[in-house]
Design a protein around this nucleic acid. Structure first.
Lengths: 246, 246
DNA sequence: CGTCCATAATTGGTCCGACCATTGGCCCAA
DNA sequence: TTGGGCCAATGGTCGGACCAATTATGGACG
């Protein structure tokens, strides 16, 4: 078979659902609708778009499944996330990960991405971004000393600032999903009440390597943080003798 | 804020849709249905489950949006991925730019993940996995020589085999999304008709490092592939003088 | 005047029956 | 064997109806 350079997209004859979502995204953009805002009722949409309510509902159902929208019976349909006409929806489906392996898997992804993001951040961050990262670091350190332990929120704010300074929005979104995945099954620190403690000093060294515009140094420090969390996780797992089942 | 150990699942007022999906997942499990298999007609499901076809359709629409299922009018509804009652779906919405920067962003993600996956693969792959990777490599090399150039499909098959051998299903899913994001705006090789050509030899060296159980060597070879594609992309962009807009 | 509660209107959730568009198999003829 | 045309099956859309939860309304009562 000879090469077929053209992907030959299958022709979409019926794209009514997609058309509804496109129109809705355009509407949200023109109206400046953001998360929390309420969008028109299904009946209004059906009337305005000249389609049946069934079609509107099918379209909204898809957005609901993607977590973009929340429907409240008797109240209305509300935006949960910013929507746009050209967005890529990446549904990650994985076997119910309440076991140690799944937690480790999220850390493996983070190991790859956090190192890369830190390196890129050291290359691209401007003075303003570096100042912001420093600020987040200080907030985190303050919270650490006050509460005698790592604080998830402040810790995430710090990492988030680094991702944003990397100039690549994909880092933040993917790692945010890993964070959520991780915390969904990490309600208790597995009996290790100083969980994450060991990773604390590396946050400052990571900041220093970024401020020094040292990509490889920053990457190394970021990897230390992940390795430290991994070690804590293994420690807690060994203590609780987690075997894999929920 | 103090720790709130209980996730507090939002109250599910209406669980009819979910009940349908649960029943369908159970059915798929009992029948041993896998990807590619066709599942019962909407009308049959509605009759069997004692719900209306509308409800069945809403449920299937959610699965369709999650990419678990594919509907073909006039033919039926087919499984695209293994489904299970307790499976975690983490929808991820990414801004999909159509400019050069976005293409580069996907490569930055791949740089982090492919290196990590290659290293893990070298650590964990068993003889069977390594044999499969070798086979995919040979298929790719054969296609390369026959068509005088890289072939996307065979190339992806090779990388996919590596991801699967890494033991972490997240790698394949995330990078698959990056692939899609990349190819969505890369119909033509930007005028570089030997696009990807330079990355060809590194595929074999990558395989050799994996077969030798050399994690860091495998990581290095994987990074060479990404760097090569990046260089090609910059080359094509420079030629076409792409400035960012589509 | 303000508060409280029953009532009505609004809105999403489900159901039904019908029809359309596409697909795929079947049969028959060239 | 091949080709075309017919036809049943299947997903897609439609309109209308009713149910359930929520919210707004407005009057009664302290």
């Amino acid at each position: 078979m000879s090469a077929t350079p053209v992907p030959l997209h299958p022709i979409r004859t019926a794209a009514r659902d997609d058309a509804v979502l496109d129109a809705l995204a355009a509407f949200a953009a023109s109206e400046g609708l953001g998360p929390g805002d309420r969008l028109p009722t299904e009946r209004v949409l059906a009337d305005r778009l000249k389609v049946s309510r069934t079609t509107v509902r099918e379209a909204l159902t898809r957005w609901e499944g993607l977590g973009l929208v929340e429907r409240r019976q008797g109240s209305g349909t509300y935006l949960k996330a910013p929507v746009s006409r050209d967005m890529l929806h990446l549904p990650l489906t994985l076997p119910s990960g309440s076991d140690l392996d799944s937690l480790m898997h999220t850390l493996e992804i983070r190991r790859g991405l956090e190192g890369e993001a830190a390196a890129l951040c050291a290359l691209r961050a401007g003075p303003r971004e570096i100042a912001l990262i420093r600020h987040k670091l200080e907030v985190m350190e303050k919270a650490f000393h006050e509460r005698q332990g790592m604080s998830s929120d402040e810790d995430w704010d710090f990492h988030q600032a680094i991702f944003r300074a990397s100039g690549n929005p994909l880092f933040e979104q993917i790692v945010a999903a890993m964070y959520e995945l991780f915390h969904r099954f990490w309600e208790h620190p597995l009996g290790v009440h100083d969980f994450g403690h060991a990773s604390f000093p590396f946050h400052r060294t990571l900041y220093e390597r970024i401020a020094a515009r040292d990509p490889e140094g920053a990457r190394a420090e970021a990897l230390k943080i992940i390795a430290s969390v991994e070690a804590d996780l293994r420690r807690g797992a060994a203590r609780l003798d987690i075997t894999g089942s929920r």
